[in-house]
Design a protein around this nucleic acid. Structure first.
Lengths: 156, 156
DNA sequence: CGCCTTCTGTTGAAATTTCATCTAATCACG
DNA sequence: CGTGATTAGATGAAATTTCAACAGAAGGCG
């Protein structure tokens, strides 16, 4: 064969374009609802990630990994969320460089107000249209692709 | 059960988070390569969309639909790409409000230089890890979700 | 026609994100 | 221990994206 693939097939193109368009539209839609609670979609992600932890705290670097955000972006964002009273920053005892980001009471209550509507939207606009096996396929695809990206990043 | 779904299942969560993380990382990776050709990922999308058309031209409103960008974002972006000489703007004869965005020779050649590397990356980092049926599933999911979002936007 | 509504695209300011750089702390290792 | 390399996070300026408001053109309908 010449090369593995000179271009994308029609089906690949449909999947590729569709996926990013879907992501954009979905995010826009979800953001519109979250705005009613005074949160951006990004704010929500941060709050939700913090609340995954029982003590509502995460190292900045952990958040950065989980969300896939550059550290600078996260740092700026956390600063702004701090000013709004949604989170706090406290130094990490075991690593003097580290910072814990912690949910404030207000952050927690804002999240708990927004979450039901948000989850409802995610179900309505996304999962409602997917079969169980489709969901499983998505999860597996994401894991596989991410694993390979990570592996590739090591030797590169 | 209480309500249809109070929260997301573990598998749903895995799919949901994985999908957006994948998108972010993928985009970052692809962007890094495109930067070698002096293009951002966004630039590439615009150029590629224009080059889909035989005459390399699109109405701004068409681009906005295809890319899912807000018109203001697109307007600013086109302006900047104009200044860099990648595209031109010409008024649309049949609709005095309309603007055609057109690939310049430089835009076309920049794209043709960047495209092979980019397509290669998309294959390497994404499609390489997917079976044919997984690709088909992705395409169908995106279409379905987008259709329902569009339908929902009408009566809302 | 005249009026009202919708559509297209632009604009400038504000908010967000990126980029390069910097400081301090940890780590690896002789 | 000491030194050089790496890591965590912050910072300010530049680039990008959003938001609200706007102007002109089309379209609908009396």
């Amino acid at each position: 064969m010449t090369t593995p693939a000179k271009w994308l097939s029609a089906e690949q193109l449909r999947a590729w374009k569709g996926l990013s368009l879907m992501q954009l539209q979905l995010q826009a839609r979800l953001g519109r609802r979250l705005a009613e609670h005074g949160l951006s979609y990004q704010d929500y992600l941060v709050l939700a990630t913090l609340s995954d932890q029982p003590d509502g705290r995460r190292r900045v670097v952990e958040l950065s990994d989980e969300l896939g955000w550059e550290k600078s972006r996260l740092s700026h964002h956390i600063t702004r969320m701090c000013e709004r009273g949604l989170v706090n920053k406290v130094p990490c005892p075991s690593d003097q460089r580290g910072i814990f980001v912690i949910l404030t009471d207000e952050g927690r209550s804002t999240l708990s107000l927004a979450a039901p509507d948000h989850v409802d939207d995610v179900q309505r606009y996304f999962f409602r249209h997917l079969s169980t096996s489709q969901v499983a396929t998505l999860a597996r695809i994401a894991d596989t692709v991410l694993e390979n990206l990570a592996a590739d990043a090591l030797d590169a």
